[in-house]
């Protein structure tokens, strides 16, 4: 299964790849990374969207935000699940995410045990 991770922090890639090293190695998980909402939109549009099952997106990014991406996905790729990730776990952000149609909200630092469960429950 394919997961798209969107975050403007480049080191996120190394973190996720190591965290899910075994799963990736075993071919259970395919991770893609985009470092801005724009880049994520391009990926989704270019690659077979059906292939991606989950988008994990940061909210606070320069340019378009995670909320913009969420709106874009909800409009055009309604089957795609989006989980928002943010350092700000305030009710405003959480409410906004759920009202825009996010399937979940994770507060940084991410608890990877929970994330793993979320991903593999999608199967």
């Amino acid at each position: 299964m394919k997961v798209l991770i969107v975050d403007d922090e480049l080191d996120v890639e190394q973190l996720y790849r190591q965290r899910f090293r075994k799963e990736i190695k075993a071919g259970e998980l395919n991770m893609m990374f985009a470092f801005s909402a724009n880049q994520a939109m391009e990926f989704i549009a270019q690659l077979a969207p059906m292939d991606i099952v989950l988008v994990l997106s940061d909210i606070n990014m320069p340019g378009l935000t995670g909320f913009d991406l969420l709106k874009f996905i909800r409009e055009k790729y309604s089957h795609l699940k989006v989980v928002m990730v943010s350092a700000y776990g305030d009710p405003d952000n959480m409410n906004k995410a759920s009202s825009l149609g996010a399937s979940g909200f994770l507060v940084k630092p991410i608890d990877f045990t929970i994330l793993k469960e979320k991903i593999f429950n999608l199967k």
Binding site: E9, D11, L15, Q18, R19, R21, N60, A87, Y88, K108, P109, I110
Partner: peptide, 21 residues
């Protein structure tokens, strides 16, 4: 707060990860 929290998260994540691997 945000600017500090981000690197701190990385410090925590990468150190914990290193212990595990």
């Amino acid at each position: 707060a945000h600017e500090i929290k981000n690197p701190l998260n990385f410090v925590n994540n990468f150190s914990q990860l290193s212990l595990e691997i």
